[in-house]
Design a protein around this nucleic acid. Sequence first.
DNA 1: AATATATGCGCG
DNA 2: AAAGCGCGCATATATT
Length: 570
Amino acid sequence: MYLLLAAHPHGATLQEVTQAGDPHPEAPEPRLISAKELAAVVRRLEQQGGQPPRWIWHRTRDWYPALLASGVELDRCYDLSLCGSILAYSQVTAHTEYARNADKITLDDLQQPLRALQPPPASAEQGALFDDPGHRSAPRHTAEELRAEYAAQQAALVSASPADNRRKRLQLLLAAESAGAMIAAEMQHAGVPWREDLHEQILADYLGPRPPLGHRPAKLEALNTELRGLLNSPGLNPDSPQELMRALHRNGIEVKSTRQWELQESKHPAIEPLLAYKKLSRLHTANGWAWLDAWVTNGRFQPEYVVGGVVSGRWASRGGGALQIPRQIRGAVHADPGHKLIVADASQLEPRVLVALAQDSKMAEAAKGKDLYAGIAAQGFGGDRAKAKVALLGAIYGATTGESGRLMPQLTRTYPRAVGYVEQAARDGEAGGTVTTRLGRSSPPPSEGWFQSQQSTTAEEQRRADSIARSRGRFTRNFVVQGSAADWAACWLAELRRRLRAMRADGSVQAELVFFLHDEVMVHVPEAGVEACIVAIEEAAKAAKELLFGPIPVEFPVSVAVVDSYDNAK
DNA sequence: AATATATGCGCG
DNA sequence: AAAGCGCGCATATATT
């Protein structure tokens, strides 16, 4: 059953449609549901017997958080905004009317938030918000508009070529992207278990007691005093790069910037305390007491995950820097009593994805073991694992200089197919073309300005144009690998969600997905459910590989850690 | 005073 | 200007 939900000034319009997006011939007319009764109606439809419906809506993040807050969890959805973005740009559907009209319909339009249904009436009193005229505005999209949009998207999908399973894979991508949107909302709803007391202990150990507002913590203050002495700069504020640079120069430390890596080169006695200051200052400003106050509530860190926030298909995030939780404070991420955290990450995901994409059998040989870099080292780098790693990552990122640049010819000799694959992607990008991930997400085309920049006349302009072209080549080179890895991760996540939901439904294991970061997931689970969860994580990884690549002889191993505290994972 | 850009650093 | 991709955030600094 396909149920379309559209915003309405007084709540929502519900309409049953066919898979293709036509009005359902036997279903009743579209039905108006008040904001107040929405959650209950959705729950009833979700739980009536048989296969749960697929909810079709403009944007998952406008609807789902409120439903979750009301205790309603759904099985499947179709996110018109996210799927529309993919279909509008995908080369798999580039020939369709949908793609041609895309900039008219379109993304700008689709990505505007719907204002009609504001966040959840979590309680009866808050429901009153809806009666406040100030919060009411006409919805941007009627049910009919959304139905037509859905029908157009399905038509585009159906007219994609079935050859080589491209259509099937694109369909899979749309399903995975929509599932990802639900998972993102569910993870935000659940939050990462965060022990404020442990976090404060960590801060106290590194920085000293919590200082009054606007003051440096004791340890930073002490380091600052030491620095001022060592650099003969009594008024120095080391947080000011300009002041710091001048002070360093006065003391004969000839750096061009105040970055760590450059400072490390100097032997001056002020360097050590300076680096220590920078390290601690970073902790204080980025994840100190202010961070804790702002982002952790009732023992949970609840960042917003932005599905579709990165063109490659990776997720972005908002609030609290969820994608950059530093190692220093991971000890504060701690399972509830009687629970464990299962932290699983896909080992060396991007290189393995490259192996599968390029069908490089020689590199697949190297990828047989758990440690791909060791395998590569044994085959072509005299057993030097570090070298092998630098070379391979350099190929994926487009390194031209430095050690990894120098190692490229050696890598190319041993693995012409794998290197050839990313080289081709780079050349496509340099020429202004677009590239596509395994499941069919395409890189955005260059802007018109880009093509203009390539029409250069003078030698100086030409140099600049080449540099811009190469930069785009590095982007497309990386896009095919990073984006296909994101395809894999999306399927992994969706498959894992399915399994966890099944276990929750049969009452066996109450496990929750609480964190996701590119190639890593965290599940919070009662101790008794740990084994079942590990199986689910591993099975989901296998399933993801099959879905993307079929039965090819490339493994995507996951490393799993069962811990009380995140800092004990890997 | 408000807003935009640069710097630096954290994560994958 | 860290070789070489992607992101977010806090602070300093520049611009209006």
